[in-house]
């Protein structure tokens, strides 16, 4: 049965995946069009020639490169911090017994249910009070660790065999030495999954940067692109070029770490 019908399934799946991906294909195509091709009705489907005007406007006529760099810095810092902090916390919750460990883990995971719009106003006030609003630090600090990250790492270490660590403990290694020398090297699949999912979330964040950042020099690429579109209403090729450049990093990370990403989503990260 399975062998006889494969082409039949493709007939269903090809149009479905085309509908989901074709808008992005057209996004790339339209970024190489001229304003004339996009500002007429109906718009062109295929560019007449590769026009780089849109990319020139974005890269030379706006602060886009700066925003891109800001996003790289912010997302990079968040990924590194979460890898360190979430893996340590996950290891502690999975392996150690200490006062309040159970209730703390439950509380941490429960915070995933608290919507950001509830906490955003006071969070803004906190950062305003310490004078951190409108800095990249304001974007990094609240995301130094995450409930999802801790959950993912706790689940990973719980399913992970203890023998290796116990051997090292008997040899007289401290908890810290065991963690950094024995545990972390074998936790690479989980760390990779966490890195991919954290990077994509951090890179794509719009709500908090929109609230916390006010000067153009500190925009992330998402906030910059949003305002860019407001200022260049008629320049669709430039907007599309900016959209392509903004999407490329996440697309790259996703295609590179697709397996890990899917594992992180389904919570099925194994050693």
């Amino acid at each position: 049965m399975r062998r006889r019908l494969p082409s039949g399934w493709h007939l269903v799946l090809v149009p479905m995946s085309a509908v989901t991906v074709l808008p992005f294909v057209w996004m790339v195509l339209s970024s190489f069009m001229t304003q004339g091709e996009l500002n007429r009705f109906p718009p062109s489907v295929w560019p007449e020639a590769l026009d780089l005007g849109g990319y020139r406007t974005v890269l030379q006529g706006s602060d886009f490169p700066r925003w891109f760099l800001n996003s790289v810095l912010v997302s990079g810092a968040i990924v590194i911090a979460q890898l360190a902090l979430c893996s340590m916390a996950g290891y502690a919750f999975a392996r150690m017994r200490f006062i309040g460990s159970r209730i703390t883990l439950v509380l941490v995971i429960a915070t995933a249910l608290i919507p950001f719009q509830l906490t955003v106003i006071p969070t803004f006030l906190i950062f305003n009070k310490v004078g951190l609003t409108d800095t990249l630090g304001a974007l990094i600090v609240p995301q130094l660790s995450s409930a999802v990250g801790i959950y993912l790492m706790t689940a990973f270490f719980q399913s992970f065999p203890k023998e290796l660590e116990e051997a090292a403990r008997i040899d007289g290694c401290s908890r810290f030495a065991v963690f950094f020398r024995v545990v972390l090297p074998v936790a690479k699949p989980a760390l990779a999954a966490l890195a991919v999912i954290t990077f994509i979330t951090a890179w794509n964040d719009l709500f908090w940067p929109l609230v916390a950042i006010s000067s153009e020099a500190n925009y992330t690429v998402q906030v910059g692109l949003t305002t860019f579109q407001g200022q260049h209403k008629a320049d669709w090729p430039a907007v599309m070029a900016g959209t392509v450049l903004t999407t490329l990093p996440v697309l790259g990370v996703f295609l590179f770490g697709q397996r890990r990403f899917v594992q992180a989503l389904t919570g099925a990260v194994k050693g």
């Binding site: 017994r97 006062i99 969070t123 130094l144 990250g149």
Partner: peptide, 17 residues
């Protein structure tokens, strides 16, 4: 040891929620 492993991440999450 437990809290020095779990503390930093926990304080940030609970503090910001």
């Amino acid at each position: 040891t437990g809290w020095s492993f779990a503390g930093p991440a926990t304080v940030i999450i609970l503090g910001f929620s």
